[in-house]
Write a protein that binds this DNA or RNA. Structure first.
Lengths: 144, 144
DNA sequence: TTATTAGGGGACAATATTGTCCATTATTAT
DNA sequence: ATAATAATGGACAATATTGTCCCCTAATAA
């Protein structure tokens, strides 16, 4: 579904948001521990998230990553997915045709349109804050 | 969504089925022309489909690939997807957790369950024959 | 101003996926 | 039998993705 990079990106963001709600900044090490991911690679992911203005970072002692409250309410899964995998998941053709639409559909176009629309809505409507709150409440988990 | 191999696999199978309805066997060249795919790679894909008993092949002049009527009614998209990408698309966790279920869900588990169930049903219920007939009727297309 | 802390970023390595090349085998028709 | 046809299969190459290493920069505190 999503690339590994995107999965790490989503998990990192949710974890950082959860900690930010408690006013805590987190280091790369803490993130990788929380989501069970390779440290150096996760570092790249976090850089990418910062470039896309999804998270903030501060260098030096007491520094780390954080998300302010307004941002975590505004940013949705779609923003993160778009940052890593682009829009092909919810816009692209299921069979990879360059042009595929209702007028000239691929064999699975109509069937997939329903799934894709559902996915798009889900990604658009799910905010990071809502996911962070669930995590904080012990209703969900970031690692197995 | 699906791997390139899987996309080629689905398209190839639909095309071969469409031609088989007319009693025609098709060569690799014809398949690659119909679905606009690299020839040698598609050859591997067709071998894989044969190994999984989704299509049949015959060597020599007049040979080629085909699917008998009973098989194209029985085989669904799920069978093909499973052959190339396994079941992670409709069974795996959206965030890549090894264990993710209703009791110990990842942050997007419940939201994704609905999408995944829809996808699973779609893949299970869509037969190759139904897709081949749509193609034959000019209602869908295999290349852009 | 210096040691320490923590993110930034470039180069590189491992792996998976996608794609190519070429020789071989099986089948059919002449 | 032989030539032509068409799939089979192994080795290899290109590319994308994932992951690592190591040094640099910025910020803070002593």
């Amino acid at each position: 579904m999503f690339s590994k990079a995107c999965e790490y990106g989503i998990k990192s963001t949710i974890y950082i948001a959860e900690q930010s709600i408690d006013g805590k900044r987190v280091s790369i090490k803490e993130v990788t521990k929380a989501i069970n991911s390779p440290e150096a690679y996760t570092s790249k992911i976090l850089q990418q998230l910062k470039k896309n203005e999804i998270i903030s970072s501060d260098k030096g002692p007491g520094g780390g990553f954080s998300i302010d409250n307004i941002t975590m309410e505004k940013i949705t899964l779609k923003d993160i997915v778009y940052s890593f995998d682009g829009d092909k998941i919810y816009k692209g053709c299921g069979l990879g045709l360059n042009q595929c639409n209702a007028v000239r559909p691929c064999p699975v176009h109509h069937e997939f349109a329903i799934i894709r629309d559902g996915l798009t809505r889900l990604l658009e409507e799910t905010t990071i804050k809502s996911l962070a709150l669930q995590l904080q409440g012990g209703l969900s988990f970031l690692k197995a």
